[in-house]
Computed example of a mutant assay.
Amino acid sequence: MASSLESTVSSGTLQRARAQEDAAWESLVRQYTPKVYRWLRQNSIAPQDAADLVQNVLIQLFVSLPHLERDREQGNSLSAWLFVVTLNTARDYFRGQARIPDALGGSDDHRISDAVGIDETPSEELIAKICRLYEILELVRRRVEPKTWLAFWRLAVDGDPAAEIAADLGMTPGAVRQAKLRVIELLREEGL
């Protein structure tokens, strides 16, 4: 079964990327690499590890892109799909880190981390919080209209300007901001 997506990326760019045209693929990489990196860093992943994990997310995009479909009625976007893949990548990263034993003897990095109280091994609590975040986001997405969710996502997560989102979705900038507030209210009701 193919996944659905609507994207701020033009359908022509997606079609060319599916056909493995280098220029189209490079355009997707340029557009989404900073977002994926920022999402990973917001999940407390070290910069060097986040850079590696961005590559894993982009590989998943490359592999999955031929199977993704555009569906404007569903309100799903390429950005939202990548966000979920990024959360799953972060979760897998934390699970893997939990299985790596602490180094004996210590390096300069290890001593510095100990001195400032940084725990490099994520806790089960952090892993559970990331999983719960994904569950809440999906629950709220199902409770609102697709256009409301897309307006929220693009404004709150992607950081797109309200005027640009309004023009793309046939809304006013005020309605875009209201959509964001509505979704945030629902997220808070769900305990986020």
Rank of each mutant, 00 (worst) to 15 (best):
I112W: 12
G191W: 02
V157Q: 07
P47F: 09
S10G: 14
L150Q: 02
L186R: 09
A50R: 03
R70N: 05
E73V: 13
M1N: 08
L137G: 00
G106I: 09
A46G: 10
T33G: 04
Y93G: 01
R38M: 12
L186K: 09
P122D: 03
V9E: 05
K35M: 09
H110N: 06
D22C: 11
A2H: 12
V157R: 03
V29N: 02
T148E: 02
A175T: 05
A163V: 06
S3C: 08
L150C: 01
E138H: 14
Q48W: 11
P47L: 13
Q97C: 11
E73M: 06
V29S: 03
S4D: 12
L14V: 05
A51G: 06
L186Y: 09
A98R: 15
T148R: 00
A46F: 14
L68M: 09
A163N: 10
E6P: 01
Q42C: 13
T148L: 01
G117Y: 11
V63H: 12
A80E: 02
V116M: 07
P47I: 13
D114T: 14
F83M: 15
I184W: 09
Q60N: 11
Y134E: 10
W25Y: 10
Q31A: 11
N76I: 00
E120N: 05
A128Q: 09
L133C: 06
L187A: 06
V29T: 06
L150P: 00
L137D: 00
A151K: 00
T89A: 08
L28I: 07
G159D: 05
A115N: 11
L58E: 07
T148F: 00
A17S: 11
